[in-house]
Structures are given as structure tokens and as C-alpha cells.
């Protein structure tokens, strides 16, 4: 794999729903090893961008390049195998599985064990140690045997990050990891993201601007499906258009 400067690039990606372009002609260049934030008012197309980048949605136009390789034609599961993993805006855990099992599912990815319908579950207890390490990393050791349904919202988000980390992704896409969290949960999650960013490239959608300024090296501002501007936090936060866009449509609730 050629170590290109950018871990992830998008060239003119767009997606149409009927006559409506949710994302239009978006270019992105995510520098290897950086934390790159994507911000913009609700409905700007941030989640749709994530869905396109991970191939959850088929792009109507454009190209996606991961580590120099065109992944535009791959399916979601293959994108994950290529080292790009994501979390979801609406918390995505396996509600009736325990925290340990949640993480173990991800550890089974690409492990032949997943097909063994005749083996007792004991046969994958060898994955438990790694799963426990991951839970510890996100501060969920005590929740090991609780089902995800029993966890608080903040802990569910942490569990989702642990599950994503289990894939050991080079590139991680986090869709509003602090959305809906109380203040007490935001600080630990921010610290966690900073911790796991070592040796990784992270693209994060985030509404909380203090988190954005805290974490990100560069910021892309999206508005009405298009890139409004890209720059550092200082550049972006002082830009007239960004201020106008935010004043025009900001709604931190969702």
C-alpha cells in the first residue's frame, strides 16, 4: 500500500434522492494521522457523506479513495475489511447482547469462527481477553456482562466505539459521538477519541464546537450538501459565511 499523504479522499461525490441532492460535488482530503471534523447545520448532508464514504449508500457521482485505492465500487462489508470503520449517529449496539458479546461480534469479523454453527460458544472465549481490553480502554470493564439495553446512553456510545476499535481500523468515522450526551459524559468521550486517535485517521461529525476545537486539526463545513469551506478551527470560526450558515440553521438538539 502506497503511503499517500491522504488516508481518505473523496472526489466530487454526490447523492441524489429523487430530484434532491442531499450531497453534491463534495471533495474531501483527509490527511493521514489527523483528526478531521465535519460540521454544518442539520440536514447539511454530513451523515449522508458518511454513508457514501463507507458505501452504506451508493454514490450517484464521484469517487472514493482509501489509501490510494478506489473503493467506490466496493460493498460496505469490504470497506470495513479494508480498514475503514464507522460509528452511527443513532447509537448502534446489539441491544440484547452483553457488552462483551457486542465487542466480540466485531472481533469475529474476518475470523473464520463466525460460520461455526456447530461449535459451542466456548470455542471463541479466546477472543474474550481482547474484548476485555477494549472494554477497559473505553471504561466499560464493569459493564462486561450487562446487556447493551441496560447501559446508559453515554455508555452505549462508548461501547459502540469499543466495537469499532475492535476492527483495528486505520480510518475511523464517528458520526456525532457526543450527540444527546450530558456534560458529564462529553469530557470522557472527547478524551477517549483523542486517545484512540494515535496512529489513526479520524473523521468526525460533531455539533459541539468546543469538542471540535479541542480535537480537530482541520474542519470541513458543509451546507446544503456542498462544501462551504475548509480550514483550521480559527479560520473556520471567524468566517462570515460559516457564522451566517450556523446562525441560519443551527439546532443542536439532533
Amino acid at each position: 500500500m502506497a503511503q499517500s499523504e491522504f488516508a481518505l479522499e473523496a472526489k466530487g461525490i454526490g447523492r441524489r434522492f429523487g430530484d434532491f441532492w442531499a450531497v453534491k460535488d463534495v471533495d474531501l482530503q483527509i490527511r493521514r494521522g489527523s483528526i478531521h471534523a465535519m460540521i454544518g447545520p442539520n440536514g447539511a448532508g454530513k451523515t449522508t457523506c458518511f454513508n457514501l464514504l463507507t458505501k452504506t449508500l451508493q454514490p450517484s457521482t464521484g469517487q472514493i479513495i482509501l489509501n490510494g485505492e478506489d473503493i467506490s465500487k466496493l460493498r460496505t462489508s469490504d470497506v470495513a475489511r479494508k480498514g475503514m470503520a464507522r460509528s452511527f449517529q443513532i447509537s448502534a449496539t446489539f441491544t440484547e447482547l452483553t457488552a462483551l458479546e457486542n465487542v466480540r461480534v466485531a472481533l469475529q469479523s474476518g475470523h473464520g469462527s463466525a460460520w461455526r454453527f456447530w461449535s459451542p460458544i466456548r470455542s471463541i472465549y479466546s477472543l474474550n481477553q481482547r474484548a476485555e481490553e477494549l472494554l477497559e480502554q473505553v471504561g466499560l470493564s464493569a459493564a462486561r456482562d450487562m446487556t447493551s439495553a441496560e447501559l446508559s446512553y453515554g455508555k452505549k456510545r462508548a461501547l459502540e466505539i469499543a466495537t469499532t476499535l475492535a476492527l483495528e481500523p486505520e480510518v475511523m468515522l464517528l458520526d456525532e459521538p457526543t450527540a444527546g450526551m450530558g456534560h458529564e459524559d462529553i469530557e470522557p468521550i472527547t478524551a477517549l477519541i483523542r486517545k484512540v486517535s494515535a496512529g489513526r485517521t479520524i473523521l468526525i461529525v460533531e455539533h459541539n464546537l468546543s469538542v471540535v476545537s479541542d480535537l480537530s486539526d482541520r474542519i470541513t463545513v458543509l451546507q446544503a450538501g456542498q462544501v462551504l469551506m475548509e480550514g483550521t478551527y480559527a479560520e473556520v470560526s471567524s468566517d462570515e459565511r460559516v457564522i451566517a450558515a450556523y446562525m441560519g440553521g443551527v439546532d443542536d438538539a439532533a
Binding site: T54, T56, T76, S77, D78, A80, R81, A85, R86, F88, A92, T93, F94, T95, E96, L97, E101, N102, R104, V105, A106, Q108, S109, G110, S113, A114, W115, R116, F117, W118, S119, P120, I121, S123, I124, T163, L167
Partner: peptide, 23 residues
């Protein structure tokens, strides 16, 4: 109660998530 069964239950709970994990 097999490794396969664990994946089945995960699919039941959240299929898109299972797909995003590479299955």
C-alpha cells in the same frame, strides 16, 4: 449458542451495524 449464533443475534438487533463491521 455458537459463534455463528452470536452473529445471528447481532443481525437481529442491528443488521446495518453488522454489515458495517465487515460481515
Amino acid at each position: 449458542h455458537s459463534p455463528f449464533g452470536e452473529i445471528l443475534k447481532a443481525i437481529r438487533d442491528n443488521e446495518p451495524r453488522v454489515e458495517s463491521l465487515g460481515f
